[in-house]
Simulated scan of single mutants.
Amino acid sequence: MINQVYRLVSPRQFEVTYKDRSLKFDEDFVVIRPTHLSICAADQRYYTGTRGFEALAKKLPMALVHEGIGKVVYDPRGELSSGTLVVMVPNTPLEQDDIIAENYLRSSKFRSSGYDGFMQDYVFLGRDRIVPLPDNINPQVAAFTELITISTHAIARFERKSHLRRQVFGVWGDGNLGFITALILKKKYKDSKVIVFGKTEYKLDNFTFVDEVYQIDRIPEDLWIDHGFECVGGQGSQFAINQIIDYIQPEGSISILGVSEYPVEINTRMVLEKGITVIGSSRSGREDFVQTVDFMKEYPDILEYFGILVGHVCVVKTIQDIIHAFEKDLTSSWGKTVMEWRI
């Protein structure tokens, strides 16, 4: 079959390429037709050309988007019926390690980061790279399941590496990742206090499920947290991490989730004085997707909260529609832009 792949060839310019793919392939692969794709900040850095000249020269042309769901078109084993809705796992490990998780192996491939993402007519995925979704799930929410798995993964690492006094959590960041992380923490630790710190009042108004919210320049001096989660990213992560260091109790942990293109300075003196554990987390693996889907099944009401994050929904039938969706996303101050993939 001829598969059409919609690749970014230069900033703000997409082209269609054609790849011939036989259906007589390894039975470990399944053919998926994408239905809903979600635009990530990383996709925007490629689209706008702000990723850096060297990275663009090395990775383009490339199909974007690593957040998405689709329906099974063909399963050579017949285990999954046609039309089954699944979430697609963008990380593709090439080896297994008893210590290092698949998303940290340097040999792993990650879609829309040097390898074609989900902006294709059909995606050929390993059987272990898909996770079936509940029948009644909102597909616009399910589209950014991958982003939710980032928080799931970070919290799982926190649970393994931090001490057990977990009375007060602090989440820095009033955007999508901060919203998701705070929500999962509140669900998992019902008896604990979750406090969110951000810059923008109207964004903080969306955090109705947490115990307290504060603007970062109006934090009470006597406030303390046991553990902190940095969900800011960019240059702002420097200020966020240092503020967490100021307000965290000794021997607490700081989970860093935000991505910064450039190195940031942190107050290592106080990291040492307080005996703080710093936990880095990046991306996620299949197990995080399974846990996230199970979490959605266990707490179905969480999907209503995630629905608040659905921003623009753009129907995509042409390349011009793709450009429109990315440009629309650039003007959005809150939530995720979802593409209904009908191209």
Rank of each mutant, 00 (worst) to 15 (best):
R218M: 01
Y247E: 02
Q243C: 02
A240D: 06
Q235W: 00
F239G: 11
L257W: 02
E251W: 09
Y247S: 11
D246Y: 11
G258C: 08
I244M: 15
Y214P: 03
Y214A: 01
F229D: 05
G258H: 07
L257R: 04
F239S: 13
I248Q: 08
W224I: 08
Y214T: 01
G228F: 06
G252T: 07
E230F: 04
I219Y: 06
D217I: 00
F239R: 09
H227I: 02
L223C: 09
Q249S: 15
D246F: 05
F229A: 03
Q249H: 15
D222I: 07
G233C: 06
L257F: 01
Q238C: 07
Q238S: 15
D222Y: 13
Q238E: 15
P220M: 07
I248W: 06
N242C: 12
S253K: 12
G258I: 02
F229T: 08
I216N: 02
I241S: 06
S253E: 13
G236K: 04
Y214H: 13
G252E: 10
Q235A: 15
G236F: 00
I241Q: 06
L257K: 05
F239Y: 08
Y247I: 08
V232I: 05
H227M: 04
I216Y: 02
C231R: 09
Q238Y: 00
G234W: 01
Q249L: 15
I248G: 07
I256A: 11
Q215R: 12
G233V: 03
Y214M: 00
Q249N: 15
I225K: 11
D217Y: 02
I245G: 10
Q249P: 10
W224P: 05
L257H: 05
G234I: 11
Q238H: 00
I248L: 14
P250A: 11
D226M: 09
I216F: 01
E221P: 06
L223N: 07
F229M: 04
L257P: 03
I254E: 06
C231W: 10
Q243G: 01
V232Y: 02
G236A: 06
E230R: 04
G258F: 01
G228Q: 09
I219C: 03
